[in-house]
Simulated scan of single mutants.
Amino acid sequence: MSGVQFQEIAKLLTKEVELMNSFVSVLQREEQILSDNQADKLEQIIGEKNLVLSDILVIEKQKNQLLSQLGFAIDAEGMKAFLATSSHEQSIHESWKQLLELSAQAKESNRVNGLLINRQMVKNQTALNILQQTDQNAAVYGADGQSKTTNSSGRSFIAG
């Protein structure tokens, strides 16, 4: 393995850690927006999230190409094998460890955000169900907007 390839992987790993830090930060802001029920800010945060993810994928692809050229698998096991050949270089080991920690943090944040989104969807569906009552006899207002009640014979009449 050439020193140039090793240094290139080290640089890419450092860049990936920076991007993953940004991604975790965006996920945390998304969680706050979801918790505060600020739907108007979701579009912007989703755009930011997609940009960072796109950048991460580019760096990951470049890193995987280098690993492959060096004869390593392009997965976590391949990275571990690569790191085993570079035991003298502590900084790259620290970057990998940091990347794994950030990935776990991002996974958890994404899980929490999914729960928050699901909770909001349930609330919205409940509200829609109330607004779109399926039992027309239970409707408080008729199609014309007038109050509607049902007498004991089951016939509707317009109230006052």
Rank of each mutant, 00 (worst) to 15 (best):
N118H: 12
I130G: 00
L42K: 03
A104D: 14
I59L: 09
M121G: 00
K107N: 04
V58T: 05
Q90Y: 01
K15N: 13
V112Q: 12
L19N: 03
F72K: 02
E108A: 14
A39D: 02
S25Y: 13
E31N: 13
I46G: 00
Q7Y: 11
T149K: 10
T150E: 04
E48N: 08
A73W: 02
V140T: 07
L131N: 01
S103F: 14
Q125L: 08
Q120A: 09
A73E: 05
Q62R: 08
A143S: 05
S156T: 09
L27F: 02
E108Y: 07
L66F: 08
S54T: 09
I33G: 00
L34G: 02
L116I: 03
E8Y: 07
L66I: 08
L12D: 06
I9N: 09
R119H: 10
S22G: 12
N129Q: 07
S156E: 11
Q105T: 15
Q7W: 06
E31Q: 15
T149N: 06
K41L: 12
L70G: 04
N113R: 03
K123R: 06
N124D: 07
S22Y: 10
T126M: 07
Q7F: 10
G3A: 11
R119A: 10
V140L: 09
A10Q: 13
F23M: 07
R155N: 11
V122N: 04
L57A: 13
A104L: 15
L51E: 10
V112R: 14
M1L: 12
L100E: 15
H93A: 10
Q69K: 09
Q62C: 04
G114N: 09
S147R: 06
L51S: 04
K97R: 15
A81T: 11
K123C: 12
Q98S: 14
E8F: 07
E77Y: 10
V112W: 07
I130P: 00
T150R: 02
F82Y: 11
E89G: 09
N118E: 14
K148A: 00
N129H: 03
L42T: 05
E108M: 13
G47C: 04
M121Q: 08
H93Y: 08
K41R: 08
A76C: 04
I158F: 01
D55T: 02
Q98I: 14
Q90A: 13
F82D: 05
F157L: 10
L66Y: 09
S109Q: 13
T134D: 09
L34M: 06
L70S: 07
K15H: 13
L51F: 03
Q65I: 13
Q146R: 06
V17M: 08
K80V: 14
G154L: 08
L53E: 05
